[in-house]
């Protein structure tokens, strides 16, 4: 089978293989200068995320098909800086013990491997490169929802600007996430919590009944 990587076509053996195996095959047999990231080959290190036919995926999990087009992730940015901006760590230890139910509240969000697939899929970043982005906001929700975190209000403050209200709720991040996390839902949770704390959307849509000229329901 053939795949295309940055305008170059490579011929691969036809057996079932992951994209990562295919890239390794290309590097070892055709082009040793091919650059790609990898480590664990089991979906835990977050380093091998790529776009295949415009869809984000982990190369160690995706089974490559004839005609696939491989491209790097979009909107590459420094993960550290994003996380430092939202200060995604336990701030003040509350003495509340964590039980089964409260642990389950953060189970999904703490599955995040920081692969940046969600970031690549997010359309807001085309027009607002400083948007905090899905993984940073999911991580904020992971800590707010953590029963052991006492300073929840600080988190809410940090996601008001270039944060939760800039999300279009398109759901591309949720589709892109290889760990089954739903950043869109986490952002909605954050909006609810923000409103409970007295914040609101600084730029709400002007006209609620605007049918944009094509909505058949109005």
């Amino acid at each position: 089978m053939k795949i295309e990587i940055q305008n170059r076509t490579y011929e691969l053996p036809s057996h079932e293989q992951t994209l990562l195996s295919a890239l390794v095959y290309i590097r070892e047999n055709i082009d040793p200068t091919l650059k790609f990231n990898y480590n664990c080959k089991s979906g835990a290190c977050g380093s091998c995320a790529l776009r295949v036919n415009n869809q984000e995926t982990l190369s160690c999990e995706y089974k490559v098909k004839d005609g696939d087009k491989i491209e790097p992730l979009l909107h590459k940015t420094d993960v550290k800086n994003r996380l430092k901006k939202v200060e995604s760590w336990l701030h003040v230890e509350s003495l509340k013990p964590m039980g089964e139910a409260s642990e389950q509240k953060i189970e999904q969000q703490s599955d995040c491997i920081l692969c940046s697939s969600c970031f690549s899929a997010c359309p807001v970043l085309y027009v607002k490169p400083d948007f905090l982005g899905p993984y940073a906001l999911t991580r904020v929700w992971r800590y707010i929802a953590d029963i052991r975190e006492k300073d929840k209000h600080g988190f809410i403050e940090r996601v008001q600007k270039e944060g939760i209200w800039d999300c279009t709720l398109c759901g591309e991040c949720t589709l892109a996430c290889p760990a089954g996390i739903d950043p869109k839902a986490d952002i909605l949770h954050l909006r609810t919590k923000s409103m409970q704390a007295g914040y609101f959307d600084p730029a709400p849509p002007q006209e609620f009944q605007d049918d944009f000229g094509f909505n058949p329901n109005f």
């Binding site: 760590w89 013990p97 642990e103």
Partner: peptide
């Protein structure tokens, strides 16, 4: 580890 945020699985509390 628990005090710095490690999300250990729990049995009761």
């Amino acid at each position: 580890l628990d005090s710095i945020g490690m999300p250990f699985s729990r049995k009761k509390e």
